[in-house]
């Protein structure tokens, strides 16, 4: 939790947002059938689907006002002003923000972009080999460079997917995108190992090996367990998963 002085300022802001949410809920509820009958159910006010949303919206508005007033009385305005004044001191690429971005960018790239487009196995390797390595090594320089490189790779994929190039290349040669991602993983690994060499820290080598081991072993367990034991179709079954399936069917 952030400290009390800032908290009241934050309360002012969140309470306004909650107030707006409450208003939106009520305005949405008023558009619902209130008294006319719907779907064969004779409607009266107490049957209306708007009943609870109206109560909820009202309660959120009242509570947000109460939080707002509490914030006002306890130095909220001063705190908001202080925050506004401090905005220039916030650097976009500070170490803390780089750490934050290193959690969020891979998560967003994995869930919103790659999950349905890239082979599931490779997806996990890509995600883990970046995330585990940077956080396990925990060196600011490696952090920064690796994140920039990773983000650039993801940007390339984004362009491919947005313009639908992935479908075109996959049409010419199946698994083209999977192979591209595989190359990206290799590039990432080469970059990190070079960075580690230039740092010259012996401990890093060991940590990197651990990170790599974790990145490859995890999908090696997860994929067979979910795909063949629990029989859950994976979000994207590309090159590697199909290869595993081939082996599985041949062995069975």
């Amino acid at each position: 939790m952030i400290d009390k002085s800032k908290l009241r300022g934050a309360d002012i802001i969140t309470s306004v947002l909650f107030f707006l949410l409450g208003v939106w809920i009520i305005s949405g509820a008023l558009k619902m059938p209130l008294r006319e009958s719907y779907a064969g159910v004779n409607s009266v006010w107490y049957v209306s689907p708007a009943l609870l949303p109206l109560i909820i919206g009202g309660a959120i508005i009242l509570l947000s006002i109460s939080i707002f007033v509490h914030g006002l009385r306890n130095g909220g305005i001063a705190s908001v002003k202080a925050m506004w004044a401090a905005r220039k001191d916030i650097k976009l690429l500070s170490d803390a923000n780089i750490r934050y971005a290193s959690v969020l960018i891979p998560l967003f790239a994995l869930v919103y972009m790659n999950l349905t487009k890239v082979d599931f196995f490779l997806n996990i390797v890509l995600f883990l080999s970046f995330t585990i390595t940077v956080f396990h090594l925990d060196n600011p320089r490696i952090f920064r460079k690796t994140l920039y490189f990773y983000t650039a790779e993801m940007a390339v994929l984004l362009v491919l997917f947005v313009f639908g190039i992935d479908k075109a290349v996959n049409g010419i040669f199946a698994y083209s995108i999977d192979i591209l991602v595989l190359i990206m993983i290799v590039a990432l690994i080469i970059l990190i190992s070079r960075l580690i060499k230039s740092e010259g820290n012996v401990d890093y080598k060991k940590k990197f090996r651990q990170a790599m081991l974790m990145s490859f072993i995890t999908p090696l367990f997860i994929v067979p367990i979910f795909r063949y034991m629990l029989r859950i179709p994976l979000p994207n079954e590309g090159g590697i998963v199909n290869l595993m399936s081939m082996i599985y069917y041949a062995l069975r």
Binding site: Y175, L182, I240
Partner: peptide, 12 residues
């Protein structure tokens, strides 16, 4: 990784 890449093309 290289082996994987080759295997993948053969799967195709």
């Amino acid at each position: 990784l290289l082996i994987l890449a080759i295997a993948m093309t053969s799967a195709f």
